[in-house]
Nucleic acid binder design. Structure first.
Length: 431
RNA sequence: GCGAGAUUGGUGAAGGGGUUAACACGGCGGAUUGUGGUUCCGUUAUGCAAGGGUUCGAAUCCCUUAUCUCGCCCCA
């Protein structure tokens, strides 16, 4: 038997409804924010992902799905959403659009070649947003407000924001040098991973889990002391705008992003799901004013975030939150014998065209098992099509909730269903 | 990339070398030949993740591979 590739999963049944619901809520919210939808290719030229990401290039390359196409081109399945959107922004010259800033949202699969474990897959899905062309701190706050409002709309409690500022390039470079100078004499006191990070990515030493409690960490230089006036001002304004929205946030100086193109605001949004631990962090994002330029576009400020779909749905399940209305089956059609199937099929089709949700038995089940099936589907009406109905053009409809049975002529059928489905006061319709 | 534990019908599972793979749910058929959700009866895995090996005999022991779960690493 052929099995699914490691770290992938099939979206079927209930999961399908959950994914569609979450995407729908997000899509409707993005309409209200007046953002445009964008979909970029699932694979791109490898160089898009393997450059512009600074010191962590080796790590990035190790975990991407790379392949050579038949034309000998190096291709990579996208490991995240931002790079492709930036590429599209540049290639389609969106910076010349009359509607600026350019505000975009996306939803789709991302691919990382990692060992699967709790909440982590090789193909996973992200909802994300990118805004180009505004360096206004109000836009940072708007971007932060989107996942906050989204998680609240879905019903999650205790939605909290952690923010930090990495400053502009000047501030960030100064801080990085200060960190290296500080840690250099203490290298031996750090864990082996941090020794590695010292060379590849000194900022990340700050959120090391192993060394977290050590004194050298607590006395390490603070980013805020290295922010220049422009960066400080930007960060303060972001906080003022968050205050204006009554969004609860905490400044976390150890919140960092590894990649070089991040500037100013970085943030994470978490919910408080019982027993969910670190998985409570559902969303991450920040400002990346340098990335467009690094990918050969015009210098353009940008800010965005991404939310992992799988973890989000798991959180909603943990909290027992609703995923919208269940699909209602309006009519279950039972042909009595195979002689009745064509007529039943045609009638069912007509009802579907009139907007009703209809199921027609295609397994030639017995009357008994058809009624059982109609029950399982919670069908509102059962319509029995037999010789009598065909000859007399009078249909037998049974309200499967109240057990009332009706005789209805073909001409009255649609009016009858409209009336009874909208004004039904049986228990099933009022749960 | 490293480590631990799993994988038996549609589903939940029992069985840890001996003949016919328990039990339950579900499904299907019937009692009731156009009216179900209760009850009763019948039936429902030529097969135990895949392949190979040991054995008179393997779901059971060994090897390989795949996938799943949970850690480590990493997390753009």
């Amino acid at each position: 038997m052929i099995q699914k590739p490691k770290g992938t999963y099939d979206i079927t049944g209930d999961m399908g409804n959950k994914v569609r619901y979450v995407e729908h809520v997000f899509s409707a919210l993005m309409d209200r924010y007046h953002y445009d939808y964008i979909a970029t290719p699932l694979f791109e030229n490898s160089s898009l992902f393997h450059r512009g990401v600074g010191d962590s290039t080796d790590i990035v390359r190790k975990e991407t799905y790379d392949f050579t196409d038949r034309g000998g081109r190096a291709m990579t399945l996208r490991p995240e959403g931002t790079a492709g959107v930036v590429r599209s922004y540049i290639e389609n010259k969106m910076y010349g659009d009359i509607n600026l800033p350019k505000k975009l949202w996306y939803f789709g699969s991302m691919f990382r070649y990692e060992r699967p474990q709790a909440g982590r897959f090789r193909e996973f899905r992200q909802l994300g947003v990118e805004v180009f062309g505004s360096s206004d701190p109000m836009m940072d706050a708007e971007i932060i407000s989107i996942p906050v409002n989204f998680l609240r709309l879905l019903g999650l409690k205790g939605v909290k924001v952690h923010i930090n500022s990495l400053g502009d390039k000047e501030s960030r470079d100064a801080y990085r040098e200060a960190l290296k100078a500080y840690f250099e004499p203490h290298l031996e006191e750090l864990c082996s991973d941090c020794k590695e990070r010292f060379h590849t990515n000194p900022l990340r030493i700050l959120d090391c889990k192993v060394d977290h409690e050590k004194d050298i960490m607590k006395q390490a230089p603070k980013m805020e002391d290295y922010l220049n006036d422009v960066s400080k001002d930007h960060f303060n304004k972001v906080q003022e705008y968050l205050d204006a929205l009554n969004i609860e946030y905490t400044v976390n100086p150890n919140l960092v992003r590894g990649l070089d193109y991040y500037t100013h605001t970085v943030f994470e949004v978490e919910a408080s799901v019982e027993g969910f631990g670190s998985q409570n962090v559902l969303c991450g994002g920040g400002r990346y004013d340098r990335l467009v330029e690094m990918l050969d576009g015009p210098s353009t400020p940008a800010v965005g975030f991404a939310i992992g779909m799988e973890r989000l749905i798991t959180a909603l399940e943990y909290e027992n939150l609703s995923f919208g209305e269940e699909k209602q089956l309006d009519v279950y059609v039972i042909p009595v014998t195979s002689e009745d199937k064509e007529y039943a099929f045609g009638l069912g089709n007509a009802l579907r065209l009139s907007g009703f949700t209809v199921e027609i038995d295609s397994l030639n089940r017995s009357m008994k098992s058809n009624f059982k099936q109609a029950d399982r589907y919670h069908a509102h009406f059962v319509m029995i099509i037999g010789e009598t109905e065909r000859n007399d053009s009078i249909l037998t409809l049974k309200n499967n909730h109240t057990k009332e049975e009706f005789k209805v002529t073909i001409d009255q059928l649609i009016d009858f269903l409209d009336e009874h489905l909208s004004s039904c006061d049986c228990d099933d319709c009022h749960e």
